[in-house]
Amino acid sequence: MAHAPDAALYAQWVELLGWLDAEADRLGLSFEKVSDFPDYIYRMERPYDLPTTVMSVRLNSGGQPLLVAAVSPRHVDLKAISLRLMGGSKHWHLHAGETGLLEGKRPFTRERLASVLDGAMRGVAV
């Protein structure tokens, strides 16, 4: 499978972070940083070129994590963005595409994220 360069992955990750923040606002969830890149924290004097230091974030519903989103650190093989519905056994594996995030071959758009989160919210409400 042809992948866009790593730079695209991190640019799209930053875009996804924006979507998550906005969607959290819309749904009344809290959007919190979970962790920074270890490669940023412990880089000492080594240069750092990623657009963000944030490696993973969570959307909390009532103090409990609902969705955790994370991106691979810059040094790992087979980089991807992962979304997981905590406790739901649902896992999304996203790649950088030429025009935007891909879920396999299917584009992962903001609308798709919104529908995923709406579904998750329905699960929480049950």
Binding site: V34, S56, P73, V76, K79
Partner: peptide
């Protein structure tokens, strides 16, 4: 191991007294 590690929730308070880091 050169691949990405597990990502889960971190520093999550289970109660006022106990904090959990799932990773």
């Amino acid at each position: 191991f050169g691949f990405d590690r597990r990502h889960a929730d971190k520093h999550y308070p289970l109660s006022d007294f106990v904090i959990l880091d799932q990773e």
